[in-house]
Amino acid sequence: MKDGSNDTIEEAHWASDYRMLGSVLNNEPQGLMARLEVEVPGWRSAEPGQFALLQAGSSRCFLARAVSVADEVGARVSFLIAPVGEGTRELCALNGGDMVWVVGPLGRGFDVDALVISRGRAVIVAGGAGVAPFPLLLARMARRHRALFSRPVGEGPGGPQASTLEVLVLLGFRDALQAEASTLLREVAALACESGLRCRVEVAIEDGLRGPAEKVTDLLIRHLRSGDRVAVCGPTPMAEAVWSICASKPDVRAWFSLETGMACGVGSCHGCLITLADGSDARVCKDGPVFLGEAVFGG
C-alpha cells in the first residue's frame, strides 16, 4: 500500500544508531491485550517501568507509540499492548515474522531497590492495561531479592540477612476477559515464588459476575499497611484514588507510572509536559514515566 503522500517505510528498512528494526516472534492474545514478543537486535536491557517507542513496519500512522516493556530475556522483548487507537491496533495485529520499529528502552523506571530493601511490604497496584510494566518489575525484584538474601553455599539457615520481604500484587479489571491480561504477570509471580520471594496475587473484578464486584482500590484499602512501598500503574482516576489511600497511611511511599500522549519519547519535543504538585514542569517521557506520588499529587 503506497501513495504519493505516504512515506516509503516498507522500502527503506534502514535502522539507525537510534532506531532498531525488530521482528515479531509471537503475538498472543491476553484478554483484550496482545502480548507481542519481539526479537530486537541491539536491545539494551531495560529497567522495569521503562518504555519503548514501537511502530509497525508497515504502519499507516506517522508517529510511534510509547509502550511499557513487559518482560525481556536478552534481546527477546515482550510488550503488553491494549488496542486503544490506530497505532496500537496495528501493533496488536502483527504476526510472527512481521517487522516492527523499536526505539528504546526509554525513560526512568521503578527503583527496584527502594521496593526490595524495605522493612514494609512491596505492593504492586495495577488497573487494566496498567498491568503492562509489572511482569518485568516483579522479575527484577525477585532477582534483586535473590542477590541480596540468598544464603552463601554451606551457610546454615537463618543466615546474616533473613529476608522479611513480602510482595503483594493487587490487580483490577473491568471483567474476566480483561483480567486475562494478567497471565504473564501470574507466570512471573509463580517463578518469583519458586525463587524464594514471598509473593501473592489478588485480583478485583468490577463487573461482579463471578464473585464480588470490587475495584483494585478496595483491595488496597483492605491490605495497605504503614511502611509499605507501592508501585502503581493504571488510568488516572484509579491512580488518584490509589494516591489518596496511600497518603492516608503513615510512612507509605508510592511510585506512579504515568501515561500521556507522546511524540518523541526522548525529551526533544516537549509535548508530554505535566505540571507537578510544586508547580514545576516535567516531561513524562524523560523525567518519568515513573514519578513519586507526592511529586505528582502533592503531600
Partner: peptide
C-alpha cells in the same frame, strides 16, 4: 517531526 520516530 519525522525525527521524533527516528532520532537518527
Amino acid at each position: 517531526s519525522a525525527g521524533f520516530r527516528d532520532p537518527g
